[in-house]
Nucleic acid binder design. Structure first.
Lengths: 358, 358
DNA sequence: GCGAATAGCTTAAACGTTTAAGCAAGTAGT
DNA sequence: ACTACTTGCTTAAACGTTTAAGCTATTCGC
């Protein structure tokens, strides 16, 4: 194995085997039979290809076929564990189907999102999975206009001819809030995220619906929403305002909001004696003496369903059916941050673990 | 903005502007002046390009130029926060330089690694950053043979003409172990990871050196190493064997090992009254009443340095200087899992936080 | 044993770029 | 007024594939 100067091409194989390049191409693509290439020739070609350690040039192939076997994935932030896991699931499934994935983090910015769309379009991705930031209609339409299949995941944007997969967000916060009400709490705050995002909006609605159904008047003074910009700071400020109002409980709309809130609390000297916390998705941080209850989004299914739809759209180049799917998870399964067995494989579902003793 | 059937190419622009494709190409690549294209023509071309919403076809460009503006990154597991953060840092820097990154997780398997190398070679990446699993000499050489620049990060493999960036692993565990000794501990166990990996090997050496320097005989009975396969289970088993030997303290060689150990402990009814835990990198999980002390690898610098070298190699197509860089971090900065302020921005370095009161 | 079918290959165009080389004017130098 | 640049463009080849179409023997049907 010596240092080659030039990459070996299909032409090199053709010459060495004494055949035409098309013959080689047919064989290498497994279309030998189909194009009546003799058994012996096929073997010879394959042998030579192996000898020369041939690897196809995808750029050339893509140029010719118009397909890249590459998928684009735009998430808000790949270093957020929620998206990291989603990405990993998607990467794995795609891999099995012979596709690679290019990632990009939008940081919830429509400008960054736009730049990402440009890059992905230029890279000729065969399909896109996106968690769209607010106000990015037009950029998503860039894909649609070029008939690049897109599936929105986690959130969706109305009025676009684009498929989407999301969870029943309203159900999640409805279950969590109801649970708090059942525990006897009455003054329940909501600490949300960008309300422009469909999933957050849904979680807000679930929270309100639960209150309404139980005859509790909802007060806008204990509902806060924060943005991606200055996230840590604004979460901390909102939290402090909420705590100042002596609430019984807080509903965190996302694990990121919950995490940052817990970190903030860990710096405080005093915390309300009785305060219940619930969150959508497990916070990454936990306080030693305040348990956080949470429901978990079916992350794997989210990715699987999205890819299923995407691959279907990639196949069917003709009529594109827009599918809007809402996964209905069992939000009754409320987990607790103090119950540590859920970390292993998320199987254990105990209600309130008291296993603080060692 | 209507639904176009065909992607607009440089030829479309040329026709609409009434010029040749080469003229368009020159202008679009900013080589207008250089090739004495008139000001007015340049403007006209740019206008038409904008009107037609032109995006270059990277496949064609790559085929022609042999460059893809794409970097490959192979890590052990992208859903491991350590690698996720590394990836994000790398993605960001690459992005600023106009490069995209394709990720792949090897799961520490040389077979998966091999498949990934194939894919990346076929995708014609301009450069690679890899955290090599054990025994993958030959596959890394695939890149070298094709003169694709590679930089190994986090770990390195001896005897290869390949640059690498790593931290002073020996120093990390030396500092941690010394700290434990200073606290009066004598029976200190090591729970390591695959010893074939250079970084883990280094951490083992640091542990031994610290013991030796303090005149403590090192016993192989309290040194365990686990592999990626059946990770959770083997860590738990090793941990139990260690605890059965009544050790004073445990050194965890990686955050993953530490995390899994803590999870295991959280299921135990009884734990030794006095047990000190130290780890390289912060564990993702924390027990409420046992603090874990840890040092942190300079993650950002690791990525930055690796990319710096990689880009240098991409530039210099001629003589390739092999650089083996070891980052010497300040391992004296020992953090504690109970000190929560480190989560915010990793600035605070307090020794032993007692802020358990609320 | 003659036309038709078939088996087994090759030819050549095309995908969208980049880029070296060339060409026809106009301008400058002497 | 002739040569020599300069300006502003164009021509055409090349990158490595894929794939429709074509070509030549051989075999088949009868």
């Amino acid at each position: 194995m010596k240092t080659n100067e030039k990459r070996t091409s299909i032409r090199d194989i053709a010459e060495k085997a004494g055949v035409s390049t098309s013959l080689v191409s047919y064989v290498l693509n497994g279309k030998g039979k189909e194009h009546r290439v003799s058994e012996e020739m096929a073997e010879k070609v394959l042998l030579v290809a192996k000898q020369l350690n041939y690897h196809p040039n995808m750029a050339a192939r893509s140029l010719r076929t118009g397909k890249t076997k590459t998928l684009g994935l735009i998430v808000a932030d790949i270093s957020n564990p929620f998206f990291a896991k989603l990405a990993r699931r998607i990467e794995n499934i795609a891999w099995e189907k012979g596709y690679q994935v290019i990632f990009g983090s939008s940081d919830e910015s429509k400008d960054k999102f736009e730049k990402l769309t440009s890059v992905f379009i230029e890279k000729q991705v065969d399909g896109m999975i996106v968690t769209p930031p607010a106000d990015c209609h037009e950029h998503i339409m860039q894909f649609v206009n070029r008939s690049i299949p897109v599936v929105m995941v986690d959130r969706h944007i109305d009025g676009l001819p684009v498929s989407s997969v999301q969870v029943d967000n309203m159900g999640a916060t409805y279950a969590l809030t109801s649970h708090l009400l059942q525990m006897g709490h009455r003054k329940i705050a909501l600490l949300a995220y960008d309300m422009k995002l469909s999933n957050i909006e849904g979680r807000y609605q679930g929270y309100r619906k639960a209150l309404k159904n139980n005859g509790i008047p909802s007060s806008e003074e204990i509902v806060y929403s924060v943005l991606f910009k200055d996230f840590d700071k604004t979460v901390s400020e909102a939290l402090k305002k909420i705590l100042a109002q002596k609430v019984d409980a807080i509903v965190f709309a996302t694990n990121q909001v919950a995490t940052q809130s817990l970190i903030t609390m860990s710096h405080m000297k005093k915390l309300p004696a009785k305060l219940s916390l619930v969150s959508v998705d497990r916070p990454e941080f936990r306080l030693s003496n305040i348990p956080v209850m949470y429901v978990e989004q079916p992350l794997a299914e989210l990715g699987e369903k999205a890819l299923e739809i995407l691959f279907r759209q990639i196949k069917e180049t003709k009529k594109q059916v827009v599918e809007q799917i809402t996964l209905h998870a069992d939000w009754k399964k409320i987990l607790s941050s103090q119950d540590m067995s859920d970390m292993a494989e998320h199987q254990a579902i105990r209600e309130a673990a008291g296993s603080d003793e060692f």
